[in-house]
Design a binder for these strands. Structure first.
Length: 871
DNA sequence: GGGCCAATACTG
DNA sequence: CAGTAT
DNA sequence: GCCC
């Protein structure tokens, strides 16, 4: 269940657009009215949170999750060589160690030092065992079960201890590969479990590959060490004569560069065709150092800087950046200024000299040059924009209204997108049969028409800028990267808020004395309190591809997914925040220092970023990606979560065959396995549309007045969806309702052979029912289908809830909570008193549920169309 | 040390 | 109730 | 894991 496409997308609800007009001024007002002005707040979210702080939780969830992570990181559940390494730990009772003692570094260093060239700490004891013994597990291990305890459960049960007997050998592993060969991807429609061609985990194959990989790595590492001990790095034959560093001879001056980082860089340089030299001579093309320029010659034993003419003296980040993008970075920004008493501009000429001297400085350089040009082009472009934005009225206006500049081509220029919106506005299917009120006209049409206008120019410029900047990431001062322009509105919005926040701090100091705050600052404060909520900002799908930090984001995303699978909720959260911050960060991150400055990125993640910058890789990712494989696959089965997956893995099961033979599966799990391959695939938007039509047809054959909305990621406009979520309701103003239709619809769809499997049935009163199943268009693939019926009056709350995405929902619900309200799928309630653990003690008073707009307004959240809710 | 981007429904 | 789901 |  990819959180990404958690819930789907629909069109709009009756009155959402109605509010667009007054939203410019009103939503906020609502908020201020409800919120007593707190004059002394520093207007930071934190203060606000304290103000509404909850009772402390009594639970040990932290240690639990840490333990989970710890175990995972220790490789307990890894298929990788750490299995061996850990046996000792098991037997010596590593579980007794304090959780906090189990650090990630330990593990990473341990299992990966063979990747590095530095001295290799001795491997753990069992290293006498060949990798081939990986499959052998201890015959009996004790394993605590980790449960991510729910917040409101104050009392934790004692940990369950599973006593697990692990088969000496996994007899199925071999047979599995055969399965792999014979498996037919589509031909598994059979409903007879025995006949199912099971999807295959290809474990044995993977293990072989891993072993080979490891061997080769070790060999390589050994070679590296050998060379190192001889101190003749330059004798290493470049591994890739076409690499970005080919023909370059680079001298690293250690000084302030950390050994690990230095070695990693050297390795990479060599791997990409460069020569790493130890001693300075005239053949050196680049000197990499963190020393001040005036000291370089001394270190090199030169009389002065003269001998360095024609040679690039660069900061380490030049290497890092080049490695990360696998292109030579433009040297200019990384030049270490050499102290030249005679002429301050000397270093400039030194640069050009170097450029001339080393003509073999391949295409990378010239590309950098061209990017340089675009840099200027953008430079001219941007300030204008910036000015425009700044000149916009003070923050108040910006916060009150949706950003005046709408996303343009980024989201809208793809065919699917155009389709999305045109079909929406034409009230084609997904828009449902919703009888729009006259005064609502065609809200969506209006919405996008109005907003497209201002974007036209912008999108043109963005496109132009993008064309110019293809490699524009090299302008890593980066103020003018294309991302920035796209996100301009929100960026400057935030900038403005920062500025404003500074001002407010002054105001505040004074405010205590004369308490004469302007209405403006009050409002800004008010707004700022909730500024950190995701739901206060627009987020849209699919911006990573053009992000300058794509690589970093990808790696971190892998860790994020991993921790999510492990149900390490809080670590997941942190990674999510970090990734999210990076996505919004519009220039390439080029150092630890820069990374840690970004809110949401702390020491640990910044360190990881540095490693990615330096090596283009993250060893942690490598280590988990293998160990993760099986558990990832297991927990991808519908109905299987981390608990089952981890347990099965610990039991020694590695394939679906193992599970089917040895585990008592729930119905949902069986179905999940049967349809596994298909369900893993994303559903093209068009197919979701088509499927929605089928459901609509079935529904209307039951009652033509039913209204259907396809929600989830579809409604958010995603080009592909993970499942189909359809919300069904009926205007009850004629005294009838949709009561009882859900079973009929389902039966109808069964009869059409459209629904092929049921997963769950609702037992609720059918006015608000839930169905989960699997459907298939004839000749198509199995798709997850969710149907919900909701009371007509709750439509807005339901749409909001089922449209997601999950982050957006959590965010907006927390926001509600902070305002002493409660938001759920039924509506928004105020005057909620919450006890310890955040449990609401009373029902509160229902204040909004009919439309999304009502709810946004009541919460003081600026209206956000579904496509901006992908946080 | 402890909160954090939630609240609720079905299965076994 | 724990686990999995939305 | 991040941040108070």
């Amino acid at each position: 269940m990819n959180p990404e496409d958690n819930k789907s997308t629909t069109n709009d609800q009756p009155s959402s657009l109605l509010h667009i007009n007054h939203m410019n001024g009103k939503s906020f007002k609502t908020e201020t009215e409800q919120q007593p002005s707190s004059t002394s707040t520093t207007s930071t979210t934190t203060n606000e949170m304290n103000e509404y702080a909850f009772e402390p939780r009594i639970s040990s969830q932290l240690s639990c999750s840490s333990l989970t992570a710890g175990l995972d990181e220790m490789g307990i559940f890894s298929s990788q060589d750490s299995d061996i390494l850990l046996m000792d730990d098991f037997e010596t009772g590593f579980l007794k160690r304090k959780v906090n003692d189990i650090t990630e570094e330990e593990v990473v260093t341990e299992s990966h030092d063979h990747n590095t060239i530095g001295q290799q700490p001795p491997r753990k004891k069992i290293s006498t065992q060949p990798p081939s013994s990986i499959k052998t597990l201890p015959t009996e291990i004790k394993l605590s079960s980790f449960s991510s305890q729910k917040i409101n459960k104050n009392v934790r049960k004692p940990k369950t201890i599973y006593k697990i007997v692990v088969p000496k050998k996994n007899s199925n592993t071999t047979g599995n590969s055969k399965h792999h060969q014979t498996k037919s991807k589509k031909g598994q429609a059979s409903s007879n479990l025995r006949d199912i061609q099971l999807p295959n985990l290809a474990i044995s194959k993977n293990e072989r590959e891993f072993s080979n990989e490891e061997n080769s790595l070790q060999i390589k590492a050994k070679r590296g060490r050998k060379k190192n001990t001889t101190g003749k790095d330059q004798e290493i034959i470049p591994l890739d004569s076409n690499g970005i560093f080919s023909n370059l001879r680079i001298l690293f001056i250690q000084n302030n560069i950390g050994t690990v980082r230095l070695n990693l860089m050297k390795e990479k340089v060599k791997a990409k065709g460069g020569m790493v030299v130890d001693t300075f001579d005239t053949s050196v093309t680049h000197v990499v150092t963190e020393l001040p320029g005036k000291n370089v010659h001394k270190v090199l034993g030169l009389l002065d800087n003269k001998s360095l003419e024609g040679i690039h003296v660069l900061e380490p980040n030049w290497v890092s950046t080049s490695i990360m993008y696998d292109k030579l970075a433009k040297t200019e920004r990384y030049e270490v200024p050499l102290y030249k008493p005679t002429s301050p501009n000397e270093s400039q000429s030194s640069t050009s000299l170097a450029e001339k001297t080393h003509e073999n400085m391949n295409s990378g350089e010239s590309e950098s040059q061209s990017s340089h040009k675009s840099y200027h082009a953008l430079k001219h472009f941007k300030p204008e924009k910036k000015k425009q934005d700044i000149s916009l009225s003070p923050i108040r206006e910006q916060s009150l209204s949706p950003s005046p500049i709408f996303k343009s081509d980024l989201e809208f220029n793809t065919p699917s997108y155009s389709r999305t919106f045109s079909s929406s506005s034409n009230s084609n299917y997904p828009l449902s049969t919703m009888d729009r009120n006259k005064n609502l006209k065609d809200p969506l049409t209006k919405l996008f028409k109005d907003e497209e206008k201002p974007t036209d120019l912008l999108s043109e410029m963005i496109q132009e800028a993008r064309n110019l900047t293809e490699a524009g990431f090299y302008s890593d001062e980066g103020e003018y990267s294309d991302r920035m322009i796209v996100e301009e509105s929100s960026d400057s919005e935030e900038d403005m808020k920062k500025v404003y926040s500074t001002l407010l701090e002054h105001d505040e100091k004074k405010g205590h004395e004369d308490s004469s705050e302007t209405a403006l600052s009050k409002k800004s404060q008010e707004n700022q309190k909730y500024d950190s909520f995701s739901c206060m900002h627009k987020h849209t799908y699919g911006e990573v591809e053009i992000n300058p930090n794509k690589l970093i984001i990808e790696k971190l995303q892998i860790l994020l997914d991993h921790y999510q699978r492990m149900r390490d909720e809080w670590r997941t959260l942190s990674y999510r925040k970090a990734v999210s911050a990076l996505k919004k960060y519009n220039k390439p991150v080029s150092s630890y220092k820069e990374a840690i400055e970004i809110p949401g990125i702390g020491d640990r993640i910044a360190t990881k970023i540095q490693e990615i910058i330096d090596t283009g890789n993250l060893r942690r990712v490598e280590s988990i990606s293998k160990s993760d494989e099986v558990i990832k696959k297991f927990s991808a089965i519908h109905g299987v979560g981390s608990k089952a997956a981890l347990k099965w893995y610990a039991l020694g099961y590695r394939t679906f065959d193992d599970i089917l033979k040895n585990v008592k599966l729930t119905h949902a799990q069986k179905v999940g396995i049967e349809c596994f391959d298909d369900l893993q695939e994303r559903i093209p938007r068009d197919e979701v549309t088509e499927i929605s039509k089928v459901v609509e047809d079935a529904a209307h054959s039951t009652d033509p007045k039913l209204q259907l909305f396809t929600t989830g990621s579809y409604r958010r406009g995603n080009p592909t969806c993970g499942d189909i979520d359809i919300l069904i309701t009926r205007n009850d103003s004629d005294g009838k309702s949709h009561s009882g239709v859900l079973p009929k619809i389902i039966e109808n769809l069964h009869n059409r052979n459209f629904i092929t499997h049921d997963l769950t049935h609702t037992q609720e009163d059918d006015i608000s029912g839930k169905y989960m199943g699997i459907c298939r268009l004839s000749g198509g693939k199995y798709r997850r289908l969710d149907l919900f019926t909701v009371p007509y009056g709750e439509l807005g709350a339901a749409l909001l809830s089922f449209t997601g995405n999950d982050i957006f929902n959590r965010s907006i619900r927390l926001l509600a909570r902070k305002k002493k309200m409660k938001l759920n799928q039924h509506g928004l309630y105020k005057n909620i008193a919450r006890g310890s653990g955040g449990v609401s003690l009373n029902e509160g008073k229902l204040i909004a549920q009919r439309t999304e707009q009502e709810i946004f307004d009541a919460l003081g959240v600026p209206w956000r169309p579904p496509n901006e809710r992908s946080c």
